[in-house]
Write a protein that binds this DNA or RNA. Structure first.
Lengths: 171, 171
DNA sequence: TAGGTGATAGTAATGATTATTGAGTGGTAA
DNA sequence: TTACCACTCAATAATCATTACTATCACCTA
C-alpha cells in the first residue's frame, strides 16, 4: 500500500483519538484490504511476518480499540470466534453454516434493509444505535457437499471426526 | 406445567427424532416458558433444583441436539456466550450493549422483515436457509446510566480506576 | 435374559478472550 | 538536559465457555 494510503489510515486513527502506531496502522490497513472478515487469530497470522514481535494480545487490544472508536465492526455469528470488519456501516452478511465463510451480500440488499430500518426502529421502543443482519446457508463450495450431510447429535458426532472432518475451513 | 403440556413437549421431541428424556423435556420446556433467551449456564442453573444430578454437559448436548433438530435457535451476539431461544422461527432481537439483555422486538417488525426477505434472498446468490436480525442499543434500564459512560480502551481501563486520569478527555 | 443403541454424568482438555504487570516511547515543562 | 506523565506494547497468567472423552446407565427388542 502506498505511503499516502498509509498516511490516510493514520489520519483516520488520529481522528478517532487513537495514536497511529505501526501495529495499529497495519491491523486497520489489513482489515480494510480484505473481504474475508478475519478473526483475531487470522489478523495475527497475516501480520506475523511483518511484525514478528507483535503479540496476539496487541491484536486483541487494537481490535477492541478500533471497535470502540467506531472504525471497525465486531461480527458475532454461530461460531465461537468473533470476526472483524473494517466496514463500520451496518450491512448484511451471508454466513456459510458449513465452512464458516462470511461474505458481504450485494449492496442492493443493504439498501433495501436500510430503507425499511427507520420504520422498524420507530416500533422498537428502545434507543437503537446499531443493527446487524445475518443470512445463513451454504456457500457455493459447500452446496455440493450438502447431499450427504445429516442431522446428528453433536455429542456423538464421532463418525465425523476421523475421515469426514466437517472441513472447517474459514478461508 | 400440566401433564398434557409436558406430553406435548415430549411429542415435539419425538417428532424431531429425539428421545424425550426427562432432562430434555425439562430443558425444552424451560426454554419455551421464558422470554429471557438464556445461556447454557442459565438453563443449567434454572434446572439445578429439579435435576440435581444433571451435568452441565447434558445441557450443552441437549441444546445442541435441539438446535440440530430445528426446535431451538442459537443466538450469537457480541458477548462471548451463546443464548438459546425456543422460538425457532427467524425473528429479530434487540440486544442491550450495556447489560446484555436480549429481547424480542415487536411482531410487526418481524412481519416487515419477513415481507422483504424473499426479495433479499433472491439477490443473494446462495442457498439461504435461515436469517437473523439484531438491533443493538440501550434498554430502558440502562438508558439512564448512559450519561456517564465513555469509551475506553479495554486493555488499559485498570489505570483509570484509581487515578481517574482520563476524566476531561473526550476520547 | 442378553445385546444393542443412545443418553447422561463426570471430568479432562481445548481454545478464545481478558487481566496483569513491567518495560518502552514520545511529549512536555521546569 | 532531566524529570515526569500518559500512553502503548509484549509477555504471561488467569479465566471461562465450550468441546471431547469415557464409563455408566436406561430403554428397547429379540
Amino acid at each position: 500500500m502506498s505511503r499516502a494510503a498509509k498516511e490516510s489510515i493514520a489520519g483516520e486513527l488520529r481522528g478517532a483519538g487513537m495514536k497511529p502506531t505501526p501495529q495499529r496502522v497495519a491491523i486497520y490497513e489489513m482489515l480494510k484490504g480484505t473481504t474475508s472478515h478475519p478473526s483475531v487469530e487470522a489478523v495475527y497470522e497475516a501480520l506475523r511476518h511483518a511484525f514478528p514481535a507483535m503479540s496476539l494480545n496487541t491484536v486483541y487490544c487494537t481490535l477492541q480499540a478500533l471497535v470502540a472508536a467506531g472504525l471497525v465492526r465486531k461480527l458475532a455469528m454461530r461460531e465461537n470466534v468473533f470476526r472483524y470488519d473494517a466496514n463500520a456501516l451496518p450491512h448484511a452478511h451471508f454466513v456459510c453454516t458449513r465452512c464458516g465463510r462470511v461474505e458481504d451480500v450485494s449492496a442492493s440488499v443493504d439498501e433495501d434493509l436500510t430503507r425499511i430500518e427507520p420504520g422498524l426502529e420507530a416500533r422498537i421502543p428502545r434507543h437503537v444505535i446499531d443493527y446487524e443482519h445475518y443470512f445463513y446457508g451454504y456457500c457455493v463450495d459447500c452446496e455440493a457437499k450438502l447431499a450427504r450431510s445429516h442431522v446428528t447429535d453433536a455429542c456423538h458426532k464421532t463418525d465425523l471426526k476421523k475421515g469426514e472432518t466437517r472441513d472447517g475451513r474459514a478461508d
